[in-house]
Simulated assay, not measured.
Amino acid sequence: MKKKVMVFGSFVVDLMARTPHLPVAGETVIGSLFKMGPGGKGFNQGVAAHKAGADVTMVTKLGKDLFAEVALDAMKTLEMDTSSLFYSEEIETGSALIMVDEETSENKIVVVLGACSAIGDKEVESISEIIEESGYLLTQLETNISAVEKVIDIAKKNGVKVILNTAPVQPISDVILKKVDIITPNEVEAEILTGICIDSQESASKAADWFFDKGVKNVLITLGSRGVFIASESKQEIIPAYKVKAIDTTGAGDAFNGGLVAALADGKDLWEAARFANALAAIAVQRLGTTPAMPTRKEIEEFISNN
Rank of each mutant, 00 (worst) to 15 (best):
A281M: 03
D65T: 05
L66M: 14
P38K: 13
V162M: 09
G42V: 03
S173Q: 07
Q140D: 01
I182G: 09
N158I: 03
M99H: 12
I145G: 05
A277P: 02
F34M: 13
I163Y: 11
G215Y: 06
H50F: 10
E69P: 10
G94S: 12
T57E: 09
A284D: 04
L223H: 08
V110H: 11
G42D: 01
V244S: 02
E106M: 14
G53T: 01
S232C: 10
E237A: 13
D254H: 02
A52S: 15
D121V: 11
I230E: 11
A246H: 02
S10A: 13
V148A: 07
F229P: 00
E125I: 11
E302P: 15
S10K: 08
A207M: 04
L220R: 09
A231H: 01
I239A: 02
A25V: 12
I300V: 12
D209K: 14
S84L: 06
D81A: 06
A49P: 09
A48I: 04
S10T: 08
N307W: 05
A17P: 01
I239K: 04
V180I: 07
T250Y: 05
S83Q: 08
Q201H: 11
M99T: 12
W210H: 09
E301R: 04
N307A: 14
S203L: 07
V216I: 05
K214H: 06
I172N: 01
T28A: 04
V111T: 12
D65K: 11
I145H: 08
I109Y: 11
E191D: 08
S134M: 06
D266Q: 14
H50L: 13
S88P: 01
I130Q: 15
Q236Y: 00
G39D: 05
S117F: 10
S203R: 09
D174M: 13
L280Q: 14
I127V: 14
D101I: 08
S84A: 10
V7D: 10
P168D: 08
K76R: 15
E299M: 00
A167Q: 06
A273T: 07
E233P: 05
I182K: 10
V216R: 05
M99A: 15
K35G: 11
G40Q: 02
T139E: 01
E189H: 07
A118V: 12
